[in-house]
Design a protein around this nucleic acid. Structure first.
Lengths: 168, 168
DNA sequence: CCCACCGTTCAATTATTTTTGAACCCAATA
DNA sequence: TATTGGGTTCAAAAATAATTGAACGGTGGG
């Protein structure tokens, strides 16, 4: 799949920044998010003052569109938060350094919806199996579906646990 | 990103099979694996007898190359297992229905390597920070790096717990 | 009420990942 | 030792995802 090596260097940044940003890119990659998200979060994570859209464009060298979308996603995840800044007309952001909230946001926005739609699919499958004529087939399918149901339940059970363990 | 809807129908299969396979595709997608992996696992999950490479090619309508690679990955994950079959010359497989082993394999093969290389990156960053001249900058960077270190440790801590909770 | 500027949107482009299929290797068989 | 058939490999093609940039909407200041 992806091998974790070889990242194009990010221009106009100090070495620590470049490396931390690269680390964040790896991190969001594992979560299935695009690199630009990692760059934006990484830069903000190391920023001593709030940053606004144009700061990301200038320092990371990525487009306004990408930054706008990235900030939107990170905001809905709760990974960054809007704050006041020097220029009244701009929207400034700070990184939220609380891991618990970060994980919570990711689960809420990216994981739960999948589990939910998965559950609906399982229900539909159960209905289809009901209609199966052959007794043996029906029993076999029901057994297998039971497995899937249990797996899905365990996955859902896991989430609160996950949040608790990662609680700051 | 991906929205969980709209899957092209799989030909030559019963409705239950099609649906379960689609469910498996969603599942592996969440884990960041390609659709073909989900198709292969799904078909095998519903198979009453062991299947060999050509069975997957014929029933799923995907190429020999994809099936070969998919079986290889699923085998290293421990999600499927080689078994004897009617034709001595072929290699047959069965799905492993034990969730614990499945999760264990995924963590071992897909998660741990990332955490490991992440740790190495953090060590390198620490070294770079040491060289920072400015006292304030160094302190600030060290604080932030501490955060990342803690997060990385918590992620690693999580894995055994995960396996325990999902233990059949 | 107009202008200037910040941020959003989305069709087109670019980058990345996945799949294909033909060439190949190897073992079993004749 | 040639042949056949199962399985692997990998370069090329196809599919998918991410990024760009130009056009647009809205807001605050003049």
């Amino acid at each position: 799949m992806h091998d974790g090596a070889a990242q194009e260097p990010v221009a106009g940044l100090g070495e620590v920044e470049r490396r931390v940003i690269s680390f964040c890119c790896d991190g969001v990659r594992i979560l299935g998010l695009p690199k630009s998200i990692g760059e934006i979060y990484g830069l903000l994570f190391l920023a001593r003052t709030p940053l606004a859209l144009d700061d990301f464009v200038a320092r990371l060298g990525i487009s306004k569109g990408s930054v706008s979308q990235g900030l939107k996603l990170l905001r809905t995840l709760g990974a960054i938060v809007e704050v006041e800044g020097p220029d009244q007309r701009r929207t400034y952001f700070q990184a939220d350094l609380n891991l618990k909230r970060l994980v919570g946001g990711f689960i809420r926005e990216q994981v739960r919806p999948h589990l939910k739609s998965g559950d609906e699919k399982l229900k539909e499958i159960a209905e289809v199996i009901e209609k199966e004529e052959d007794e043996d087939d029906r029993a076999f399918y029901q057994d297998r579906l039971g497995k899937l149901d249990r797996w899905s339940k365990q996955a859902r059970l896991l989430l609160p646990l996950l949040q608790r363990v990662l609680g700051e």
